[in-house]
């Protein structure tokens, strides 16, 4: 599945070369009927993109409180949060609110 992932508000600093936009191909998980949920995506991001200080991005199995998530420019709290199912070509944006006022 092709997804566009965007990191902002300082989260980009945790990634290689501080790149903000990542066009990625996520292999669909074998379990869970091959659906890519946000929960799956978060662990995928941790494994494949985060280079340092993952605790700035994740806490337990979700994003760290204070990190905003938008799926196709819609607050993920309206889309099912961790259970939200992603589709081909979705754009997921992560923004930290925790850096500098």
């Amino acid at each position: 599945m092709h997804l566009t992932l965007e990191f902002g508000g300082g989260l980009e600093l945790l990634l290689e070369n501080s790149t903000k936009v990542h066009k990625v191909e996520v292999t669909t998980p074998k379990d869970g009927q091959g659906k890519v949920t946000m929960k799956f995506l978060l662990s995928w991001v941790k494994e494949n993109l985060i280079k340092e200080r993952p605790e700035m991005f994740l806490k337990a199995d979700s994003v760290r409180p204070g990190v905003l998530v938008l799926i196709n420019d819609c607050d993920w709290e309206l889309c099912g949060g961790l259970d939200a199912e992603l589709e081909e070509k979705d754009v997921v944006v992560f923004i930290s609110t925790l850096h500098g006022g």
Binding site: C74, L78, C79, D83, A84, E85, D90
Partner: peptide
């Protein structure tokens, strides 16, 4: 879970939340 943007705004009732 509802797809992104499938709910309507509670204020205007017209646009997607």
């Amino acid at each position: 879970p509802p797809r992104a943007g499938s709910r309507l705004c509670v204020r205007c009732g017209e646009r997607k939340a």
